[in-house]
Design a protein around this nucleic acid. Structure first.
Lengths: 179, 179
DNA sequence: ACAGATAGTATCGACTTGATATATCTTATG
DNA sequence: CATAAGATATATCAAGTCGATACTATCTGT
């Protein structure tokens, strides 16, 4: 899913400016499974406009900078439908936490405990955030997506809580054995 | 976690060539939370060598192309430790599946069912893969990381199975109401 | 015999990130 | 009341990254 398609999809849900698209991927129901920066959104919108998949109208605002509001054209909707017909690629999950855990063993085993404890707090925060989204966002599919996120976050959290001590015990033996 | 640190961390677990590093991130215990292409690994190794964080020796092999085997230097180990002292950034999760679900509602609600059913199969495959890894890989932290992955994948799978029909029911009403 | 996978290094264009610039308005805080 | 901080808005740039491809040689399956 490139930023191009992401923009097309968001515009299929309603008109928006580049700034608003950025906000949606950073804070809205998109926030936990996609990301995009201005540096990719603005060029994407420019190209989509050139290709006739979206149109742009400038809206003057009171006491605020002008907005460029983009709308999906019929051609854009068709292009999106074509893309969605294809099977979505596999999820891509990058976790500095898990990498740090694996590497910490090699350079500083004591760090493992702190890493896990910080992570527990992060999961709890994320779950609270997602539950907050549930109260605003009412579309059935949005709710499904957010609850899917909550389910996985909670599973991760419970796994950490249940297995933390076992892991630290096993590492304890390793550390002692190495000394 | 940039590819630079990823290489440093993998080399902390043992010497490796660029090709082997790529294989680890694509297939090993790293596979489900990190990715890196040759186009980022080779330049990273070159730069790390220039900076004295790794060393490189060429190994001639019988009936195979020569290898460039990289090893972590003490300076490299120190650099890795410094990086790991910092808090890991939040996970980044990109899911074409979840995006497609949200967008499908807008352009082709019938697609939602197929998307979910394909996804169930994908999760089952992924879980089997991870369980396969468990049998080879024995390090305590590796096992922890892989089981963490299994726990989240299973939670996602069960969520989909439990809520699929409810969602399709809700969409059914939407579709009927729109027609 | 021949296709395709495996082992290996390497590069390139296109895309993406993260930081930064610019400018104005609103909201806290001392 | 001043002033810092943050929101609203567009835009660019260097540096990093992906995915495809190139090249060569061997091993494996049909």
């Amino acid at each position: 899913m490139d930023v191009r398609t992401l923009c097309l999809g968001i515009l299929a849900l309603g008109d928006a400016s580049g700034y608003e698209i950025k906000k949606m991927v950073a804070e809205g129901s998109f926030s936990f499974f996609s990301e995009a920066s201005y540096g990719s959104i603005y060029p994407a919108l420019t190209r989509l406009t050139e290709e006739g998949l979206v149109t742009c109208r400038e809206e003057a605002q009171d006491k605020r900078p002008d907005k460029k509001v983009y709308s999906l054209t019929p051609a854009g909707r068709a292009a999106l439908r074509d893309t969605l017909r294809k099977d979505p690629g596999p999820d891509r999950h990058r976790s500095e936490f898990l990498a740090a855990l694996l590497f910490a063993e090699a350079v500083s085993p004591e760090r493992v405990r702190d890493l896990i404890d910080e992570r527990v707090a992060q999961h709890e925060k994320k779950i609270a955030e997602l539950k907050g989204l549930l109260e605003e966002d009412v579309s059935a599919v949005s709710r499904f997506v957010i609850e899917y996120g909550i389910a996985t976050q909670e599973a991760a959290l419970h796994y950490l809580k249940r297995h933390r001590d076992r892991l630290l015990g096993e590492l304890g033996h390793t550390i002692e054995a190495a000394e």
